[in-house]
């Protein structure tokens, strides 16, 4: 369960988040949708305790991230990049992360297997392709077998096989009762996997509800999105 309650944030004197409020519930995939620069990453970083909100609170299972003990057993996060130092092998990276949360070394190979990187365990992270980095980042998120998953643009950089794999993985995770929150600016992608949708634009939540509720009378989520964010299509000359 994720609760974001009236979170605001200012950066370089501009307000980038205005009273952002939403929930992501267990057993459901919640899509966090918004155009570039809307504030998706900023919100997720606050949720993960990386950045501080100016006001408001973000809670995971009722507690702020910074108060979680052995957080990886509660929540797994995938942000930009893999989080692995270039000079480290995938396995070495996963092992130190596991050790920090009291998890056994054997978890490293287990999660590498889940994301299909077993053959690259001894490769340095600096040599990873974009898609491989995403997989390594996901492997890190899965180390503690967490009940909550937070992913920022998880399909970015993945090939079609990877995208389908990710979609099924997230659907299965939700089916097992996990809370899955993922951001995206790809509406068709989200429409395929999300149960619930939150739409953010210019730092404000402009819609939230089930996929059907947010789509409303519009033909597709995409149409609804353009109506909600009032983004005008650039007219070709």
């Amino acid at each position: 369960m994720i609760t974001v309650d009236r979170v605001s944030k200012t950066r370089s004197r501009t307000r980038i988040l205005h009273d952002v409020t939403f929930e992501a519930r267990p057993g459901r995939v919640t899509g966090f949708l918004g155009p570039n620069g809307a504030g998706k990453t900023s919100t997720l970083r606050i949720l993960l305790g990386l950045d501080r909100p100016e006001s408001g609170a973000a809670l995971i299972c009722g507690r702020p991230y910074r108060k979680l003990d052995r957080p990886l057993t509660t929540i797994g996060a995938l942000l930009d990049g893999s989080g692995a130092h270039r000079a480290r092998t995938a396995r070495a990276h996963l092992r130190w992360v596991a050790a920090s949360n009291g998890l056994p070394d054997s978890r490293a190979d287990e999660v590498l297997e889940i994301v299909g990187l077993t053959g690259d365990a001894r490769k340095r992270a600096g040599r990873f392709s974009l898609g491989m980095s995403r997989r390594l980042g996901l492997a890190t998120a899965l180390l503690g077998d967490p009940e909550v998953l937070v992913l920022d643009e998880p399909v970015n950089g993945l090939d079609p096989v990877g995208i389908r794999w990710m979609r099924e993985f997230l659907r299965n995770s939700a089916a097992q009762g996990r809370t899955v929150l993922l951001s995206s600016h790809l509406m068709s992608e989200l429409a395929e996997i999300a149960d619930d949708v939150i739409v953010i634009d210019k730092g404000r939540i402009v819609a939230r509800g089930s996929l059907a509720e947010v789509t409303g009378d519009h033909r597709t989520l995409e149409d609804a999105f353009f109506a909600l964010t009032a983004t005008e299509a650039v007219r070709p000359w």
Partner: peptide, 27 residues
């Protein structure tokens, strides 16, 4: 400094610090 160096050319802003702080959020 190893926490702050960029982890890959694909994501210039990504650093090991993210992994570190998500694993141990109490600074």
């Amino acid at each position: 400094s190893s926490e702050y160096t960029s982890t890959s050319q694909h994501a210039p802003g990504a650093r090991q610090l993210t992994a570190t702080l998500t694993a141990v959020p109490d600074r």
